[in-house]
Measured scan of single mutants.
Amino acid sequence: HIECVVCGDKSSGKHYGQFTCEGCKSFFKRSVRRNLTYTCRANRNCPIDQHHRNQCQYCRLKKCLKVGMRREAVQRG
């Protein structure tokens, strides 16, 4: 199976330009649609994997963008 490029979980297909799991797909869509801004409580390099992906939204969104998920691919409302 193909892994989610963000957290390594099982990918459910290509979403917003990259293969991601449902969790990262939904997180990215929600973040972009609502134009959410997050803050990192650590050093902005938190581990984002299957077990830690919900611990830091700032670093999760940063990783989504770093691996090539595209904001412009998210349809507005």
Score class of each variant (00 low, 15 high):
Gln50Lys: 13
Asn54Val: 10
Tyr38Asp: 03
Cys4Val: 02
Lys10Thr: 12
Asn35Phe: 03
Gly68Met: 02
Arg53Asn: 10
Cys46Thr: 02
Arg60Ser: 03
Cys7Gln: 00
Lys25Ser: 13
Gln57Tyr: 15
Gly68Ile: 03
Gly77Val: 10
Cys21Asn: 02
Gln57Asp: 12
Glu72Ile: 05
Cys46Lys: 02
Lys62Gln: 11
Gly8Trp: 06
Arg70Ser: 14
Arg33His: 10
Lys62His: 06
Gln75Pro: 12
Asn54His: 08
Phe28Asp: 00
Phe19Thr: 08
Glu22Met: 11
Cys40Met: 02
Asn35Gly: 11
Gly23Asp: 15
Gly77Lys: 14
His52Lys: 10
Lys10Gly: 08
Arg71Thr: 12
Ala73Gly: 10
Gly77Asn: 10
Lys14Trp: 04
Thr39Val: 11
Arg53Ile: 07
Arg44Thr: 12
Arg71Ala: 11
Gln57Gly: 13
Asn35Arg: 06
His51Arg: 07
Arg70Thr: 12
Gly77Arg: 09
Arg53Pro: 14
Ala73Asn: 13
Met69Ser: 01
Phe28Glu: 03
Met69Cys: 04
Tyr38Asn: 01
Arg70Lys: 14
Ser11His: 15
Arg53Trp: 05
Ser26Lys: 15
Tyr58Leu: 04
Arg33Lys: 10
Gln57Ala: 10
Arg53Thr: 11
Asn54Met: 11
Cys24Leu: 01
His1Lys: 15
Cys56Lys: 00
Ser31Lys: 02
Glu3Cys: 09
Lys10Met: 09
Asn43Gly: 12
Cys24Trp: 02
Thr20Cys: 14
Gly68Arg: 02
Cys59Ile: 00
Gly13Thr: 08
Cys4Met: 03
Ser11Met: 08
Gly17His: 04
Phe27Ile: 01
Val6Lys: 00
Asn54Phe: 06
Arg41Lys: 15
Lys66Cys: 06
Glu72Arg: 03
Phe28Val: 01
Ser26Asn: 05
His51Lys: 13
Lys62Gly: 07
Thr39Gly: 08
Asn43Trp: 11
Phe27Gln: 01
His15Val: 07
His52Pro: 13
Phe19Arg: 08
His52Ala: 12
Arg33Ser: 09
Cys64Met: 09
Arg60His: 12
Arg30Pro: 03
Gln55Val: 11
Ser11Trp: 06
Asp9Gly: 09
Gly17Tyr: 04
Thr39Met: 07
Glu72Cys: 04
Gly77Pro: 11
Gly23Gln: 12
His51Glu: 10
Phe19Ser: 12
Met69Val: 02
Cys7Ile: 00
Leu61Trp: 10
Gln50Glu: 12
Gln50Gly: 07
Cys40Phe: 04
Cys24Asn: 02
Glu3Gly: 04
Thr20Lys: 00
Arg60Val: 07
Cys56Trp: 02
Arg71Val: 10
Thr20Asn: 06
Ala73Ser: 10
Phe19Cys: 06
Tyr16Arg: 05
Ser31Asp: 00
Tyr16Thr: 05
Arg44Val: 05
Gln55Lys: 10
Lys62Thr: 12
Gln50Cys: 09
His1Pro: 06
Arg71Phe: 11
Arg76Tyr: 12
Gly17Asn: 07
Ala42Met: 07
Gln50Thr: 09
Phe27Trp: 02
Cys64Val: 01
His52Leu: 07
Val67Gln: 12
Ile48Glu: 06
Val74Asp: 09
Lys63Trp: 04
Pro47Trp: 06
Asn43Tyr: 04
Gly77Thr: 11
Tyr38Gly: 04
Cys40Glu: 02
Arg53Glu: 11
Glu3Arg: 04
Gln55Glu: 15
Phe27Tyr: 02
Ala42His: 09
Val32Pro: 04
Lys14His: 15
Cys21Pro: 00
Cys24Asp: 04
Gly13Phe: 06
Glu72Leu: 05
Arg70Met: 15
His51Leu: 13
Ala42Gln: 15
Arg76Cys: 13
Cys7His: 00
Val32Arg: 02
Phe19Asp: 09
Ile48Asn: 07
Val74Cys: 10
Met69Gly: 02
Gln75Phe: 10
Cys56Leu: 02
Gln55Ala: 10
Gly23Ile: 02
Lys14Met: 11
Gln50His: 11
Arg60Asp: 03
Ile48Pro: 01
Val74Arg: 04
Ala73Lys: 06
Gly17Ala: 04
Leu36Thr: 11
Arg53Tyr: 15
Ser31Trp: 06
Arg76Glu: 14
Leu65Cys: 05
Phe19Trp: 11
Asn43Leu: 09
Phe19Gln: 14
Cys24His: 00
Ala42Trp: 08
Lys29Asp: 14
Arg70Asn: 13
Val67Ile: 08
Val5Gly: 11
Leu65Val: 10
Cys4Ile: 00
Leu65Arg: 03
Cys21Ala: 02
Lys29Asn: 11
Lys25Asn: 06
Tyr58Ala: 11
Glu72Met: 05
Val5Ala: 15
Ile48Val: 14
Leu65Phe: 10
His51Pro: 07
Phe19Ile: 05
Val6Ile: 09
Ser12Asn: 11
Gly23Phe: 12
Val32Phe: 09
Asp49His: 05
Arg71Leu: 10
Lys62Cys: 05
Phe27Lys: 00
Ile2Trp: 03
Ile48Trp: 05
Gly68Glu: 03
Phe28Lys: 04
Phe28Thr: 00
Asp49Gln: 08
Thr20Ser: 13
Asn45Val: 09
Gly68Pro: 00
Cys56His: 03
Asn45Asp: 10
Cys56Ser: 02
Gln18Thr: 07
Cys24Lys: 02
Cys59Asp: 02
Glu3Asn: 06
His51Ile: 06
Ser26Leu: 10
Arg33Met: 10
Cys59Gln: 01
Arg53Phe: 03
Asp49Thr: 07
Thr37Val: 12
Lys10Tyr: 12
